[in-house]
Simulated scan of single mutants.
Amino acid sequence: MTASSRGRMPAGWDVDLSEDYEWVPLRLPPDVTRLTASTRLSIEAEYRGWELTKVRLYTDGTRRVLLRRKKSRVQNPHADNLPEL
């Protein structure tokens, strides 16, 4: 995932962010189909423990996605590596 695909959260999404979870906002470009996005997010859920919290579809076809997962008690040495979408 490139740095440009991550960014700040859309307005209102930062209201209910629990400290018990890790949160990752993603931007999916318009050329990513719904099926491809669904497959990629399913892989993240299956193998990395992320779950889909919110999705916003914009008129230009861009999707903003918010993923979350429970924080681990054990410090992960790769915690800075975010999901590759």
Score class of each variant (00 low, 15 high):
1 M>W: 05
1 M>S: 10
3 A>C: 10
4 S>C: 12
5 S>G: 08
6 R>Y: 09
6 R>L: 11
6 R>W: 12
8 R>F: 13
8 R>E: 14
8 R>N: 14
9 M>D: 02
9 M>H: 06
10 P>G: 02
10 P>Q: 06
10 P>Y: 02
12 G>M: 09
12 G>V: 12
12 G>H: 11
13 W>H: 06
13 W>M: 02
14 D>E: 14
14 D>S: 13
14 D>K: 13
15 V>Q: 05
16 D>V: 09
16 D>G: 13
16 D>Y: 10
17 L>A: 03
18 S>M: 01
18 S>K: 04
18 S>L: 06
18 S>W: 01
19 E>I: 10
20 D>P: 09
20 D>K: 07
21 Y>A: 04
21 Y>D: 06
21 Y>N: 02
22 E>L: 09
22 E>N: 08
22 E>V: 01
22 E>F: 05
22 E>D: 05
23 W>L: 05
24 V>L: 01
24 V>M: 03
26 L>V: 06
26 L>W: 06
27 R>A: 05
27 R>E: 02
28 L>S: 04
28 L>T: 05
29 P>I: 04
29 P>E: 01
30 P>S: 02
30 P>R: 05
33 T>I: 05
35 L>C: 11
35 L>E: 15
36 T>A: 14
38 S>H: 08
38 S>V: 01
39 T>D: 13
39 T>A: 11
39 T>R: 15
40 R>Y: 07
40 R>H: 12
41 L>R: 04
41 L>G: 04
43 I>R: 05
43 I>T: 12
45 A>C: 07
45 A>F: 08
46 E>D: 14
47 Y>E: 15
47 Y>L: 15
48 R>V: 12
48 R>T: 14
49 G>T: 06
50 W>E: 00
52 L>E: 01
52 L>P: 01
53 T>E: 14
53 T>H: 15
53 T>Q: 15
53 T>M: 11
54 K>L: 03
54 K>A: 09
54 K>W: 00
54 K>G: 07
54 K>R: 04
54 K>I: 06
55 V>R: 01
55 V>D: 07
56 R>I: 11
56 R>S: 09
57 L>A: 07
57 L>K: 04
58 Y>R: 10
60 D>A: 00
60 D>K: 02
62 T>A: 06
62 T>P: 08
62 T>H: 02
63 R>D: 03
63 R>M: 04
64 R>K: 14
65 V>W: 05
66 L>V: 08
66 L>C: 02
68 R>W: 04
68 R>D: 03
68 R>A: 00
70 K>G: 08
71 K>M: 07
71 K>E: 00
71 K>P: 00
72 S>L: 10
73 R>G: 13
73 R>H: 14
73 R>M: 14
73 R>T: 10
74 V>Y: 12
74 V>D: 13
75 Q>T: 15
75 Q>C: 14
76 N>L: 10
76 N>V: 09
77 P>Q: 03
78 H>A: 15
78 H>G: 14
79 A>F: 14
80 D>C: 13
80 D>I: 15
81 N>G: 13
81 N>L: 15
81 N>S: 14
81 N>W: 15
81 N>V: 15
82 L>Q: 05
83 P>S: 06
83 P>K: 09
83 P>R: 00
85 L>F: 03
85 L>P: 03
85 L>C: 00
